[in-house]
């Protein structure tokens, strides 16, 4: 079976690879580009650990082919921080203990980032619905929700949102 030559922008950097058509996007990221921050959890599109952004929209990379990303832009957890400065979501997960074992965290953060792009000031219910496709086996959802609330306050510093987030954090 012939390989396909693909060009993918990964975290802003143009990358190329020759891949078998059956190569999954998550394997391209992890095994070819050595970006192992994206995790493989269930491998059946249930758990969301492999969540990345494809052309800005969140997707489960275990259920996409690498060739489907040809000509597109991919953002992974490695693309979130600016140098040594963590992305507000990463910092919030740190501050709020939004992770226990940490396996679901890259997917949670990528899905949360997409959610906050759609809805800068989500309610708790909207946050929970927004991460419905991401499972935390440690069941640490309370702190995950708090983390996303903290980041929402920082990313969209409207006065109401900031006050509300601060109140939530203190509570």
């Amino acid at each position: 079976m012939t390989t396909k030559h693909i060009s993918v922008t990964v975290n802003g950097e143009a990358r190329e690879a020759d891949v078998e058509p059956r190569l999954l996007l998550v394997h391209l990221l992890r095994d070819v580009f050595m970006l192992t921050g994206t995790h493989i959890g269930c491998d059946t599109s249930n758990c969301g650990a492999c969540t990345i952004h494809l052309d800005g929209e969140s997707a489960k990379s275990c259920t996409l082919l690498a060739v489907q990303a040809d000509g597109k832009s991919v953002t992974t957890i490695e693309g979130m921080a600016s140098g040594a400065t963590l992305h507000p979501l990463q910092q919030a997960f740190w501050d709020q203990h939004g992770l226990q074992c940490g396996f679901c965290t890259p997917g949670m953060i990528m899905q949360a980032a997409w959610l906050l792009k759609q809805n800068a000031d989500p309610t708790e219910t909207e946050i929970r619905a927004g991460i419905a496709g991401n499972l935390c086996r440690c069941t640490g959802y309370v702190n995950i929700v708090k983390s996303i609330q903290q980041a929402a306050g920082e990313l969209a510093p409207s006065e109401d949102a900031a006050t509300e987030a601060a109140a939530t954090i203190q509570a």
Binding site: S45, L115, G133
Partner: peptide
């Protein structure tokens, strides 16, 4: 249907 990621694609 599914979850947000699946509804996206």
């Amino acid at each position: 249907i599914g979850d947000p990621q699946i509804r996206n694609w």
